[in-house]
């Protein structure tokens, strides 16, 4: 099903371009979610349904919610209500919705037409993923955990509100100043 692959790939690229070019953080995030959906569809098409599910759960689910929380939390203050209202105008959500619809149609075709996966591909079941991760790639999992630890410690240090505990003048940060 090469056509299905190319449609999903075009959706992914188009969404990612909009993520980069959009000036409004929340709208960019909307496109980003759709881009992740498209990548998940591609994973499904090439015979990796487990990775597709993970992509949806971990990226489109957990990580995106985290992003949105951060954006919301950065927008404290009275003007944020008006701002959030402006995010909800149709121009903002029509684009992502249309692109998601394309993907929804693809997924629908896949579900009802059955075996439409790309030819010459083997299906990678969850069991095989698990065996590979804890077998030959065990060290990769361990190194990745250290990578996450580094990210965690770094984010904790840099995300701390500077100066609260007796730092100097320059360490104070305006909330949301980084936006």
């Amino acid at each position: 099903m090469n056509v299905m692959f190319y449609v999903a790939a075009v959706v992914a690229v188009a969404c990612t371009v909009r993520v980069v070019t959009h000036v409004n953080g929340v709208h960019a995030l909307l496109y980003f979610v759709v881009s992740l959906f498209a990548v998940a569809t591609i994973f499904y098409l090439i015979g990796a349904p487990f990775v597709a599910a993970l992509e949806l759960i971990v990226y489109a689910g957990a990580i995106m919610v985290l992003f949105i929380f951060v954006v919301m939390l950065l927008n404290r203050g009275p003007q944020s209500v008006a701002q959030e209202r402006s995010w909800l105008n149709p121009r903002a959500w029509v684009g992502p919705t249309a692109l998601s619809l394309v993907l929804a149609v693809e997924v629908g075709i896949l579900l009802f037409a059955g075996d439409l996966e790309l030819e010459t591909q083997t299906r990678v079941a969850p069991k095989e993923v698990g065996i590979t991760l804890l077998g030959p790639y065990l060290l990769a999992v361990e190194i990745a955990s250290m990578l996450l630890l580094a990210g965690l410690v770094g984010a904790y240090h840099l995300g701390r509100e500077g100066g609260r505990e007796g730092g100097r003048e320059g360490a104070h940060r305006e909330p949301g100043a980084g936006r």
Binding site: I143, M146, L147, A150, V153, G154, L158, G162, G170, A171
Partner: peptide, 16 residues
């Protein structure tokens, strides 16, 4: 792993 730790190390001092 080496770079992610370095991002934080480079920006470590919070003054200025």
């Amino acid at each position: 792993t080496s770079s992610v730790a370095l991002y934080a190390l480079i920006a470590y001092p919070r003054s200025g």
